[in-house]
Amino acid sequence: AIERGSKVKILRKESYWYGDVGTVASIDKSGIIYPVIVRFNKVNYNGFSGSAGGLNTNNFAEHELEVV
């Protein structure tokens, strides 16, 4: 089962992080479509409006993740 702290591989082909491994930061139990927040070591794009980097978290559905 996917739980907080799990290392997961991203299976969503259109994702910037496809094939990468991230760490589960949290799981939303409220029934939303993409409840699993995954944190990565790298950012997906340069930040804007003065922020240092881009996003390094993204929401995924459990079926888009594979525990490694």
Rank of each mutant, 00 (worst) to 15 (best):
L55W: 08
T23I: 11
T57E: 13
Y45C: 15
G22D: 01
E3V: 12
E66R: 06
A25Q: 14
P35I: 11
V21F: 07
I10P: 02
N44Y: 15
N58I: 08
G19W: 04
K7L: 13
I33A: 15
E66F: 07
V36C: 03
K13N: 06
V24G: 01
Y16C: 07
R39G: 05
D28P: 02
V21I: 12
A25E: 15
L65K: 01
N58T: 10
N46K: 06
N59M: 08
F48S: 15
R39D: 06
Y34A: 07
K9L: 09
I32E: 09
G53H: 11
F40W: 02
W17C: 04
N58V: 12
N56Q: 08
A61C: 07
G5F: 04
N59F: 08
F48Q: 15
A1T: 13
S51V: 12
S15M: 03
N46R: 04
I32V: 14
I2D: 01
N41G: 08
I10F: 03
R39P: 00
R4C: 15
T57C: 15
H63E: 12
I37R: 11
I33P: 14
Y34V: 02
V21M: 06
L65I: 05
F48D: 15
V8E: 00
V8S: 00
G31P: 05
G50F: 07
I2Q: 00
G50T: 10
G54Y: 08
I33Y: 09
E14A: 09
I33Q: 12
F48N: 14
A61P: 02
E66S: 06
Y16P: 09
D20Y: 10
G22N: 02
G5Y: 04
V21H: 04
G47N: 07
S49L: 11
Y45F: 10
A61K: 06
I10K: 00
I32T: 14
F48L: 14
I33G: 12
G22M: 05
F48I: 13
F40G: 01
E3C: 15
G22W: 04
S51P: 12
S51T: 13
Y16Q: 09
V67G: 03
I37H: 09
V8L: 00
R12S: 04
G47R: 03
F48K: 05
V43C: 15
G47L: 04
K42I: 06
I27W: 04
F60P: 01
S51F: 09
V38K: 00
K29M: 11
D20M: 11
I33F: 11
K13V: 13
V43A: 09
S6A: 12
V21T: 09
Y16R: 04
K42F: 06
S51L: 10
L11T: 04
I2P: 04
Y18R: 00
D20E: 14
V43I: 13
S51W: 07
E3D: 08
Y18I: 03
V43D: 13
S6E: 04
P35K: 13
F40R: 00
R4K: 13
L55F: 11
I10H: 02
I27E: 01
N41D: 14
V43Q: 08
V43S: 10
A25C: 15
V21D: 01
N44D: 15
N59A: 14
K7M: 12
N59Y: 13
G31I: 07
Y34E: 05
I10T: 01
I33T: 10
A1G: 13
N46P: 15
S49K: 06
E66Q: 12
V68C: 09
F60K: 01
N46C: 15
G54K: 06
G19F: 05
A1L: 12
L55A: 10
N41A: 11
D28N: 07
A52G: 12
N59R: 12
I10Y: 02
Y16S: 05
E3N: 11
G31T: 09
H63Y: 12
I32D: 12
V36I: 14
K13Y: 07
V24P: 00
P35E: 10
E3P: 05
R12K: 06
G47I: 05
N56A: 09
R4I: 15
I37Q: 11
G54T: 09
A61H: 05
S51N: 12
K13G: 04
V24E: 00
T23W: 08
I27G: 01
A61W: 06
I33W: 06
G31R: 04
S30G: 11
I32G: 13
G47D: 15
V68H: 02
N41E: 14
R12Q: 04
G5T: 02
Y34H: 11
Y34K: 07
G5E: 03
G22Y: 05
N41C: 14
V68Q: 08
V67W: 05
G5D: 04
A52H: 11
V36T: 00
T23M: 07
K29S: 12
K42N: 11
D28H: 04
G53D: 13
E62W: 14
H63R: 06
R4F: 08
S15A: 03
L11I: 04
V24D: 00
V38Y: 00
V38Q: 00
E64S: 01
G50A: 10
E14S: 12
G5P: 02
I10L: 02
A1K: 13
N58Y: 12
G53N: 08
G19N: 10
R39S: 10
S51C: 15
E62H: 10
N46L: 09
A61L: 04
W17I: 00
E64W: 03
T57M: 14
P35N: 14
N56S: 10
I37L: 14
V68E: 03
R12E: 01
F48V: 14
N58C: 15
L11G: 03
F40N: 01
V21Y: 09
K13T: 08
S15E: 02
G53Y: 06
I32R: 09
P35A: 12
A52W: 09
T57I: 10
V21G: 01
V21C: 08
A25N: 05
G19M: 08
A1Q: 14
V67A: 05
F60W: 02
F40T: 01
G53V: 11
S49G: 11
E62S: 07
V8D: 02
Y45G: 15
Y34M: 07
S26Y: 11
V68K: 03
L11A: 02
N46T: 10
D20L: 12
L55E: 14
N56T: 12
N58P: 03
A1D: 08
L55Q: 13
G50W: 06
G53L: 10
T23R: 04
G47K: 07
V68T: 06
I32Y: 08
S6R: 05
E62I: 14
I10N: 02
E64Q: 02
A1V: 13
V67M: 07
S15N: 04
Y34F: 10
G31Y: 09
E66T: 06
G53M: 10
Y16F: 15
S15C: 09
A1Y: 09
N46M: 10
G19K: 05
P35R: 10
P35F: 13
N56K: 07
V43W: 13
V8F: 03
S15I: 02
D28F: 04
V68L: 10
L55C: 15
G53C: 15
S15Q: 01
G54H: 08
I27L: 06
N56R: 07
T57R: 06
S49C: 15
L11S: 02
S49V: 12
K7S: 09
F60C: 03
A61D: 05
G19Q: 09
V24W: 03
F40C: 03
V67K: 07
